[in-house]
């Protein structure tokens, strides 16, 4: 069975929020739209977003890491939000594992959001139905789009290519390889939700300079006579 998912590379995410707004603009006019904004030009502007980029500081000065952390629905393999839905509005697609909400069936009871430990479901406060990341279901299943564009909007937009997309059940897919080789991990593994989305950790490149590196025979200083001569008496100055 196919399980489509995102693998998010924290090693290169610079926290630019491209995924946040590219998602918003695609989906507000798409199958999952609208994505309503409340008080768009007033105090306390808020609205529905399927995707948020958060920032964490790890460690204390001067050994501080600033970690940008994009978060959207993780499309769990065992999504706790689905069985609790009383109407069947929340469901997991059998063909590709994407977790979706059918707004026409949703009664806005919010129980699914209680049953999600990740806080990725957001109630549309105007339409009063639950909304969430669809992995751009209307892009990835649209066969009229060219193959290269059959990806979630956030993946296409991401300037650092920090969002890999593919089938985590296919061991040869880019995402599976990344998870395997780069230490991909799931969020809150303690709940057994088996999130399909994974995260790739920060990696550090170090450089080690040895004493030998600094003492070499081809040092260009050896080509210079570093003593500075200036105004010294020369043979010609000497009166015999």
């Amino acid at each position: 069975m196919t399980q489509l998912a995102l693998v998010i590379d924290l090693n290169v995410c610079v926290g630019c929020h491209a995924c946040v707004t590219s998602c918003k603009q695609w989906n507000t006019s798409g199958w999952a739209g609208p994505m309503v904004d409340e008080n768009p030009y007033d105090a306390n502007p808020t609205g529905t977003f399927f995707n948020r980029v958060q920032t964490y500081e790890v460690g204390s000065f001067p050994s501080t890491e600033t970690v940008h952390f994009p978060k959207s629905c993780l499309h769990c393999e065992d999504p706790p939000c689905v069985p609790v839905c009383p109407t069947g509005a929340s469901y997991k697609r059998e063909d590709n594992g994407v977790v979706l909400v059918d707004y026409d069936k949703c009664i806005g009871c919010k129980y699914c959001s209680w049953a999600c430990p990740y806080g990725v479901r957001e109630l549309d406060e105007q339409q009063k139905v639950m909304k969430k990341c669809t992995l751009c279901i209307d892009r990835i299943t649209d066969h009229t789009l060219p193959e290269a564009e059959r990806k979630p909007a956030c993946v296409i937009a991401c300037p650092t290519n920090a969002r890999l997309y593919g089938d985590v059940h296919d061991p040869d897919s880019e995402v599976s390889v990344a998870i395997r080789e780069r230490g991909g991990y799931a969020l809150m593994p303690e709940w057994g939700t088996n999130p399909a989305n994974h995260y790739l950790p920060r990696q550090k490149t170090h450089m080690h300079v040895t004493e030998e590196d600094l003492q070499r025979s081809d040092n260009p200083l050896t080509k210079e006579d570093i003593t500075v001569y200036q105004g010294e008496e020369t043979m010609e100055d000497v009166t015999w």
Binding site: S29, G33, P34, D37, N39, Y41, G47, Q126, Q127
Partner: peptide, 17 residues
């Protein structure tokens, strides 16, 4: 004059809200 508009639900197209 929209600063006090409460909701904005942008959907492109003639049938957008």
């Amino acid at each position: 004059s929209r600063p006090r508009v409460r909701w904005q639900a942008y959907v492109a197209g003639l049938f957008g809200r």
